[in-house]
Design a protein around this nucleic acid. Structure first.
Length: 338
DNA sequence: AATTCGGGGGC
DNA sequence: GCCCCAGAATT
């Protein structure tokens, strides 16, 4: 049955694989390790649909790891703006420079694991896809597919890795992993799985129970507390005063509107331009935008008609859009905000 | 083992 | 509104 599952899944993959810009066709020569690495970092907790256009822009700007390693950090952070989880971009820069220093990407998961931003999953994925190693890239897709095949609520990571390696044909871990990911994204979905289209249904214990969706068990997101903050809108001669956030923590290293700390207490702001509500992973921010005349702290002037090139993360992009839409502003039309 | 990291899309 | 997404690093 094990060999049967692998054969069925790989054949389904050959017939239905998603063509993606970092991928090579099943059985074809391995793709460029740089592109595999970049895609895996971008895809961490981020959907394929979101990543594809961002990946294309990124590799057009920096086609190889040497070009990326030579780029200014601020340029890379700006290119990452809107993708979220900005530690990924900080680690991406550090990793690129380390790889160039070493003369290329390590070709095995153990060595890849030592690079910044490359964890257990990503190391295994790069090794399997770009270097043909029989490693076990266990992401949430693989975890879900294997949980359903065995009708178990959940398992420890190492046990899922063992299951994966027991299923994957030698030398084909890369295609097999991507086959599982495609299956997980299109058929063996978290909700409303399309078991009637699944090539593995006949060997699936969860399908046999008649309630495949119940596996694996999921956890509820904890309550999100409310926080409040202020951002300053400082405009002069068609330019806006921007600053850079500290290199660690939330939005670390990103361009931003200047402003104070965020707290659980809402401060009064009689002359505010307005405010936005922005949802982060573990809290909700109400950001008040206030006009201010003099520059605050360290920063730089950025042309307001090119604010979309400022590398602002989404919360500040939204704040800027609000300010530019405010009645007393005349520059609104020039900013193509998202 | 829990938390801290963003943001967007689907229902 | 809630859930989910090719997770990693830190505590």
């Amino acid at each position: 049955m094990t060999a049967n599952i692998a054969a069925l899944l790989l054949q389904h993959y050959v017939d239905n694989f998603r063509t993606l810009p970092w991928r090579s066709a099943p059985g074809a020569a391995a793709p460029d390790p740089y592109r595999v690495w970049l895609s895996e970092i971008m895809l961490q907790q981020t959907t394929v649909a979101t990543v594809v256009p961002r990946f294309e822009r990124f590799v057009q700007r920096w086609p190889d790891v040497a070009a990326l390693a030579a780029a200014p950090a601020e340029a890379v952070m700006g290119e990452w703006a809107g993708l979220g989880y900005y530690a990924r971009a900080r680690n991406l820069i550090a990793c690129a420079r380390e790889v160039v220093k070493r003369g290329g990407f390590p070709d095995n998961s153990a060595a890849l694991r030592d690079l910044p931003g490359i964890g257990r999953y990503t190391a295994a994925a790069i090794a399997a896809i770009a270097f043909g190693e029989d490693s076990a890239p266990v992401d949430t897709n693989v975890e879900r597919v294997i949980a359903r095949l065995n009708a178990v609520a959940g398992s420890r990571r190492v046990d899922i890795e063992r299951r994966f390696l027991a299923l994957a044909p030698a030398g084909r871990a890369g295609d097999f992993a991507q086959a599982m990911m495609d299956l997980g994204a299109t058929i063996c979905r978290p909700r409303a799985p399309k078991c009637n289209q699944c090539p593995l249904a006949s060997g699936c214990a969860a399908y046999a129970t008649g309630a495949a969706e119940a596996f694996p068990t999921r956890k509820r997101r904890p309550f999100r507390p409310q926080k409040y903050g202020t951002a300053w809108w400082i405009e002069r001669g068609g330019r806006l005063w921007l600053t850079r956030r500290p290199s660690t923590g939330l939005l670390g290293g990103m361009a931003a509107l200047p402003g104070g700390e965020w707290s659980a207490v809402k401060a009064s702001s009689p002359a505010a331009i307005g405010h936005i509500q922005h949802i982060f992973t573990h809290f909700v921010l109400e950001l008040t935008i206030e006009r201010c005349e003099e520059p605050v702290g360290e920063g730089w002037w950025h042309p307001i008609d090119r604010l979309d090139e400022a590398g602002l993360p989404t919360v500040y992009r939204r704040a800027a859009k609000l300010a530019l839409a405010a009645p007393e502003q005349s520059t609104a039309a020039s900013f193509a905000a998202a």
